[in-house]
Amino acid sequence: MNNNNINPLKNTSSEQTNPIHFSAQGIMKKFGGIDALNDVNFELRRGEVMGLVGDNGAGKSTLMKAISGAQLCDSGAFFIDGEEVKINSPHDASRKGIQIVYQDLALCENLDVTANLFLGNEIRYLDNLKIIPRALRPLNHLSMEEQTKAALRKLKVHTITSMRTKIGFLSGGQRQSIAIARATKSDSTIVLLDEPTAALGVSQTKEVLQLVKRLRETNHAVVLISHNLNNIFEVCDRITVMRQGENIGVFDTKDTTPDQVVSSITRGE
């Protein structure tokens, strides 16, 4: 697509100007006797898509859960723009601008697009009237719907026409778009995508990859987990390889071939 002329530009600019936005250092996590994460270092820049690859059980999802506060790690530290931050809950993470899109999406199929986008974070009337409990303040339906439309437009998702459609009636790709829109609608700077294309067909995968590229254009730091190296090579600027809970190395996409990455994944070279 049009990434041919955007990609090289973005790549060089991110290398030259964008400093490291987020880093995780010395992350350890044990499950019983298994080292799910063993002294992992990991870093992200804004305006850059970082691929995260590795075999099943390599620890990719565990690392994402640690960064998003969904599952605490045993030891290690996180830094945003050089400053250490504590991430002890999903709430902490989202306050620091970190959003995760789960492998299993976590959308409510019985609610419509707007309701899902704002779930747990609704826009309400009377929000400065502290006597009324928050849960009882009336919802501002129209404002939420308007912002939902805007959020999807910003991501150039045009296939969802009515914001009042229940999620259950949307395709896998459309659901993925909504999950991503939810992650990026607030002032997030870091978006973690755990296998967003795993269950999708060819054209829907393409849609989602377009979305990922758009997140780079909006200056997010993006992590993309996938087992499909074609997809990884299509959109990522750099690739981190994990193996048995360790970070094996980081590759620059343009100086690397898929074969090198494969042998790194399987043999740790």
Binding site: C108, E109, L111, L119, G120, E122, A135, L136, R137
Partner: peptide
Amino acid sequence: TSTSYGRAMFAVGGNLESARRVGI
């Protein structure tokens, strides 16, 4: 139908895990 409380009810009934993750 018109409060965060009600939304949370539908969310819990529709996808408990999702409701938990958004902080309900």
